[in-house]
Design a protein around this nucleic acid. Structure first.
Lengths: 338, 338
DNA sequence: TTGAAAGCGCTAACAC
DNA sequence: GTGTTAGCGCTTTCAA
C-alpha cells in the first residue's frame, strides 16, 4: 500500500540508514538529498509514526483524562494545551470520564496500553487510585486544577491558589460592609470546592463574621445548578446582600436567575463571579470577577509535561501554583443594610 | 522495562503463538490460560498496542478535526462519539484548528502520519482541499455537521436538514401572523449558515413575505455575537416582532440581550432558539426551539465510522441526514401588530 | 557520509 | 492446541 523507506531505498539506490538519517535531520550528500526528495514525491511517501514509535519506545502521544468535555473552563485548558503539544509534534488523546471514577480508571488503563508518553489528568477520583498504574509504568503524570493528597511528591501539578482567590473575593465584599454573603460552590468534596470554601470561611473569620449555613450552596459547577442555587438564596427570608459564585457556568446561571427575578446588580445585590472565558465576550463587561488564567494553566501544563518528557531522570516533581486576579467591574457596591 | 509477550513465554514455557492467541480470544487449554494469567500478574504485563498496530496495520485511532473546542454543540458531539468509539477500543485524537484552514490541513497531515484508521471532520475549509491526502491514503473520511460539495460521493457524512429546520421555525412564526422576522445566523459562508438562510428565505416566500435585509444578522455562532446581533436588531426603527436564532450560544446571548433591555418574551417579542444542550438545564424551560439531536449525531457518526472501518471494500458513501424537531415552549405567540 | 543487519513487540501463517 | 518463524517500518549500532 503506502510507500515505505524500503521503497525509497530501492528508488534511490541508497541504503536505509541514509534515508533514515535524512528524515532525522542528519547530514546527507546534496545529490542524495535531492534523490530522496524526488522519491518521496514520486511515491507519496509518508513517514510511519507507528513503526517509529515501536523502535524509539516513545509514541509522542499525551493522554488527557478529564471529568467533562462539556465544560468551558476545561475545554479552554485542553485547547491551549493541545495547541502547544501539537506544535511539538505530540498528539493528544482525550478521554472524558463523565466524572465517574470507574471510567476514569479505565481511561488511564486504555491510555497505558497505547503507551502514551505522559498523562495529564483533572482528577475525578480524589484518592488517586486510578493513577497507580501510570506511576508504576513510570511515565510522567501531571495533575491540573485539582491536587490529590495521596500523590503529593509523586506527581507534578498545575493549579491555582483557590483559597486565596476566594479570600480575595470575599474580603472585597466584607470590606464594603457586606456581612451576609452567599457562596455558590461546585460539587461537594472536590478539591477546588473545598479550597474555595476554606478561603470563604477564612475571610469571614477575618472580618469577624459567623458563617450562616444556608448561605452556602452547591451548584454543581453547572449553569443550571448555579441558577437553582441563586434562586433558592433569593427565597430566603434573610437574603444575602452579596454573592460569590465560583465558576463560569454558575456565574452565567446566576446572572440569568437574577435577571429573571428582576434583581438589579449591584443596586439590589452585589455579585462577584468567576472565570472570564472567551464565550463570555463582552456580555457582562461590568461584572466583578475572579479570573483564572485558563490559557496559562494549559500553557504551563503543556510546557511542564514537555519538560518532564525531556528530563526523565530528574525525579523532581513540581507544583505550579498560578495566581488569580480580581477584575474590578461594577457589580459590587457598599452594603446598604443597616 | 515493561514486560513483553516474550517474557510471558519464558515465564510460562509456552510459545508466543499461544500467548498471542490467548489475548486475541482464541481457545487455550485451561491450564495454560491460568499460567498466562499468573504470569501477566506477576510481571505486570500490559499489551503493547504500538507493536500490535504495526503488525496489524491498524492503529485503532480515529482522528477528529474540528473548528473550535470551545463550542458546546461540538464538544457535545465529540463527547458522544468518543464514548462509543472508546468502548470499541478506538482512541480519539482531537485536533482543534481554530477555524483556520491552514491549521486544518496541517492537522489532517499530522493525523495521517500517525496512521489513524479514519478521519472525522467538521470542515473549516469548504473547498475540501485539506482532505485530499486522506482520500489518497484511502482511509474513511466522515464529515459531520457540514457538507463539502466537492467531496460529494467520495465521503460519508452525518448532518441535519438545516433548511428544513429553519423552515419549520420560520413557518411557525409566519403562521402566527409574524411578518417581520429577525434571523440570527452564524458566520457567513458556512454550510449550515447558508442552509439555514435558505430555509428562512423559502419560508418567507411561502408566506408571501419579502425579506428585509436588515433583519438578517450574523452572530458568528458565539454568545457575544448573538448578543450584539440582537442588540442591533432592537435598535432598528422598525423592529422585528419575532426572532429565529440559529445556535445555542447565540440563543443564550439573545436571551441575555433581551433581559438586559427589559424585553419580555413572548409579550414583546417572540423567540425561537436553537439546540437544547445539557448546559441549558432547566433554565429556559419555556423556550420554543429547534432541537438538533447532537447526541445522535455523535452516535451516528461513531457507528458509521465503525461501519466504514469494518467494510473497507464497500465503496458506498452514505450521507445520514438526521431530522430536527420543533420543541414547543411559551416563547412564541401570535403577532399583535396591526 | 553510507550500508548491512539486528531488533523494537506483536500477529499469523504454517507445520506439528 | 501449540510452537517456530517471518516480518510489519523504522532506528541505530557498527564497520566500511
Amino acid at each position: 500500500m503506502a510507500a515505505t523507506m524500503k521503497d525509497l531505498s530501492r528508488e534511490t539506490g541508497l541504503g536505509l540508514a541514509t534515508i533514515s538519517k535524512y528524515f532525522n535531520g542528519g547530514v546527507v550528500r546534496e545529490k542524495n538529498r535531492l534523490a530522496i526528495e524526488n522519491a518521496v514525491k514520486k511515491l507519496h511517501y509518508v513517514p510511519n509514526e507507528v513503526a517509529r514509535s515501536l523502535k524509539t519506545q516513545q509514541t509522542r502521544v499525551i493522554g488527557v483524562v478529564i471529568p467533562e468535555l462539556s465544560n468551558a473552563f476545561i475545554t479552554s485548558i485542553i485547547s491551549s494545551m493541545e495547541d502547544i503539544l501539537r506544535k511539538q509534534d505530540y498528539a493528544v488523546i482525550v478521554c472524558d470520564c463523565r466524572s465517574d471514577p470507574k471510567r476514569e480508571k479505565e481511561a488511564v488503563e486504555f491510555l497505558l496500553h497505547r503507551r502514551v508518553d505522559g498523562l495529564i489528568n483533572m482528577a475525578t477520583d480524589a484518592t488517586g487510585a486510578h493513577l497507580k498504574a501510570a506511576l508504576n509504568a513510570n511515565i510522567p503524570v501531571l495533575l491540573i486544577d485539582r491536587l490529590v493528597e495521596s500523590l503529593r511528591g509523586k506527581v507534578s501539578a498545575v493549579v491555582i491558589d483557590n483559597a486565596h482567590a476566594a479570600g480575595q473575593a470575599v474580603r472585597k465584599l466584607t470590606e464594603l460592609g457586606h456581612r451576609k454573603i452567599g457562596l455558590v460552590l461546585g460539587s461537594p468534596n472536590l478539591y477546588t470546592t473545598n479550597q474555595r470554601l476554606t478561603g470563604y470561611l477564612n475571610a469571614l473569620k477575618d472580618a469577624g463574621i459567623t458563617p450562616t449555613e444556608e448561605y452556602i450552596r452547591y451548584g454543581n459547577y453547572t449553569m443550571d445548578g448555579g441558577y437553582q442555587a441563586v434562586s433558592d438564596l433569593l427565597k430566603l427570608k434573610d437574603r444575602p446582600t452579596a454573592l460569590f459564585v465560583t465558576n463560569f457556568e454558575m456565574t452565567l446561571g446566576t446572572m440569568l436567575a437574577l435577571q429573571h427575578s428582576g434583581i438589579r446588580v449591584p443596586e439590589d445585590l452585589s455579585v462577584i463571579g468567576f472565570d472570564k472565558l472567551e464565550l463570555f465576550g463582552e456580555i457582562f463587561p461590568d461584572l466583578t470577577l475572579i479570573r483564572q488564567p485558563q490559557l496559562s494553566i494549559g500553557r504551563e501544563a503543556a510546557n511542564l509535561m514537555l519538560d518532564l518528557l525531556m528530563n526523565r531522570d530528574a525525579v523532581s516533581h513540581r507544583i505550579v501554583t498560578l495566581s488569580t486576579a480580581l477584575t474590578e467591574g461594577r457589580s459590587v457596591r457598599a452594603c446598604a443594610d443597616g
